[in-house]
Design a protein around this nucleic acid. Sequence first.
DNA 1: ATGCGACCTGTGGCCGCTATAGGTGCAAGC
DNA 2: GCTTGCACCTATAGCGGCCACAGGTCGCAT
Lengths: 149, 149
Amino acid sequence: MGAAPYAIGDLARQTGTKVETIRWYERDGTMPPPARTEGGHRAYTQEHMDRLAFIRHARELGFALDDVRALLRLSDDPDRPCAEADAIARQHLGAVRSRIARLQTLEAELARMVDACGHGKVGECRVIEVLADLSHEHCLHPGHGGTGL
Amino acid sequence: MGAAPYAIGDLARQTGTKVETIRWYERDGTMPPPARTEGGHRAYTQEHMDRLAFIRHARELGFALDDVRALLRLSDDPDRPCAEADAIARQHLGAVRSRIARLQTLEAELARMVDACGHGKVGECRVIEVLADLSHEHCLHPGHGGTGL
DNA sequence: ATGCGACCTGTGGCCGCTATAGGTGCAAGC
DNA sequence: GCTTGCACCTATAGCGGCCACAGGTCGCAT
């Protein structure tokens, strides 16, 4: 009657996801539990396939699973205004931009460190010296706190 | 006789590290186990303090703990050539640069997505649409594979 | 002597998976 | 119909790099 269902491996192949990951999305509440065959194998529909593709795409764009779930809830309800989706995306964009900024600071500092290395002994190595520098004297870095990479 | 030893809280305050993190570095082999008081409290020396500062500084620069341990081994042995330290730092610099590049691709894509949002209903929302796009048609992104953020 | 904060160990949780181990289903070939 | 062998199943543990308890002990100031 209905179209032949997909096995978990079909979803995995088509979306480039590991089988274990798909099962994990289910335990996690990100993917809805599919029907089962008599023997207990998962039997997915096209909707499941689409949903998984959505999830993977959002994850590739760096959205956290919490965000992905929120976006999925929105996409399930096409009449709601999309301001919320927009907000999630904008917020993520902001987070990505600040991560880039932090990494660029790091990049500059690492480059300086590496450039200063005279390729002699560790005893005079600027790399080691800069790291050992308790006072952050030679440091572009703004002091203590997580890197937030 | 010797200078008064530091308590774990002293190290924590001076280096901006949580106490639990210091204990974890010890279990982990990154910090050497300190002497103990009769009652079992950790009693650190200045060397411990310096080592922890080194660790934190390297972590702030985004080095993995494996790298940090390698750098510490090198810094313990000042007569060795510093090529190895240089290599670790260069490798990390490369990793940081490629992370930046990936994030910039992401940034562009997110910005495009957000710009295209007409602020109407979810049904016509470009944000949702782009994410649902199985074929990656509207996508700058190079297909499947981890984001490596 | 007592109070209380800083310390102790041990355990579990966070994110987003990944990787086993040990067992069962199912479909294709004979 | 029977065997093979892969795909599937559940459950559990682990990664990195910590953080946050709980429930108890120590040490120092009063």
